[in-house]
Structure formats: structure tokens, C-alpha cells
């Protein structure tokens, strides 16, 4: 038992332009599932197709939904999440994370990666727990940082 059983987490994906996003998102869904947390993945059409194609039988990813519908559900108070992991590699990602922090009702973990990771992390001023690694092609630095912040590296 982890104490997280029955909780729901949101994994929010932006433009899948940076290669590490998809594998890090599937890994995160897998680790959350192992902790008893149901993961909902929201993203752009391409980001959703990338995770769905990589996990066709849904062994790791939970439900998958449209990004705009996800935002609308939270903004209208129809959906809340215990935790939200917002993947960020550009300024738009920072805006999505800030919006999620304002409307999700739970804790927000910005997952910041790509060549601008440090600068983007510095721009985030709202209360949250940042997961930061300047990874673009090799997902392992980001995986290690996720494990470290979530306490999965023990």
C-alpha cells in the first residue's frame, strides 16, 4: 500500500516536438499505476496518438482525452485531479501549467525538459513541485529526475 490508491492523476502533454516527452509520459503513467493511481492523459492529437500507438493495449496508460476538453472540465468544476503532471518545453507549456495550477484542485508538478528547461523553470513562480531536466533525445535524465522528486528512486 502506498497511500495513493484510488487517486487520479492528470498527465498533460503539449506539442510532441521534443522526443523525450512520449516515453517519459508512458513511464510516469506506469509508475503511477504501480502506486495505485489512475492516470488520465490529455494532450494534442499527435501527443495522444504517440502514447496510444506505443501502448496499444493500454497496459500503462489509462484514459486519454482531448486537451481542450480536459481544460474545460477542470475550469467548469466537473473534473478534479489529486495531482497533475504538466509536460513543458516551451512558453505555452508554462501557461498550461499555470492554468492547471489554478483550476485542477490538486498538486501540480511541472515536468520541464528540452534545451530551454532551466530558463522555463525559472519563469514558473506559482506554488508547485518542479521536475526539471534539460533532456531532449535521451529520456534517462528526465526519468531519473521524476524518480527523485516522486521518491521512486529508493
Amino acid at each position: 500500500m502506498t497511500g495513493d490508491e484510488g487517486k487520479t492523476a492528470l498527465i498533460m502533454l503539449g506539442c510532441p516536438q521534443v522526443p523525450v516527452q512520449t516515453s517519459a509520459a508512458i513511464y510516469l503513467a506506469y509508475r503511477l499505476k504501480r502506486s495505485g493511481v489512475r492516470a488520465v492523459i490529455a494532450g494534442t492529437p499527435s501527443a495522444r496518438k504517440l502514447v496510444q500507438l506505443a501502448d496499444p493495449e493500454g497496459h500503462y496508460i489509462g484514459s486519454v482525452e482531448d486537451l481542450d476538453k480536459c481544460i474545460a472540465g477542470m475550469a467548469e468544476g466537473k473534473k478534479t485531479y489529486h495531482s497533475s503532471f504538466v509536460f513543458i518545453h516551451n512558453d505555452a507549456g508554462v501557461s498550461y501549467a499555470a492554468t492547471t495550477a489554478a483550476i485542477s484542485g490538486g498538486q501540480v508538478y511541472p515536468v520541464i525538459f528540452g534545451s530551454e528547461a532551466e530558463a522555463l523553470a525559472a519563469a514558473i513562480e506559482f506554488p508547485c513541485t518542479k521536475i526539471v531536466a534539460p533532456a531532449t533525445h535521451n529520456p534517462m535524465p528526465l526519468k531519473r529526475k521524476i524518480d527523485e522528486v516522486m521518491g521512486w528512486d529508493a
Partner: peptide
């Protein structure tokens, strides 16, 4: 307005 404010049927995204 706060993040998520609905304008022209779209919820606005941004840092409040």
C-alpha cells in the same frame, strides 16, 4: 481574469 476564464466559448490559458 483568472486562468480558465471562458471567452468566445474558449477557456483562456495563461499565467494569472
Amino acid at each position: 481574469v483568472p486562468a480558465g476564464y471562458k471567452l468566445f466559448d474558449k477557456h483562456l490559458i495563461g499565467v494569472p
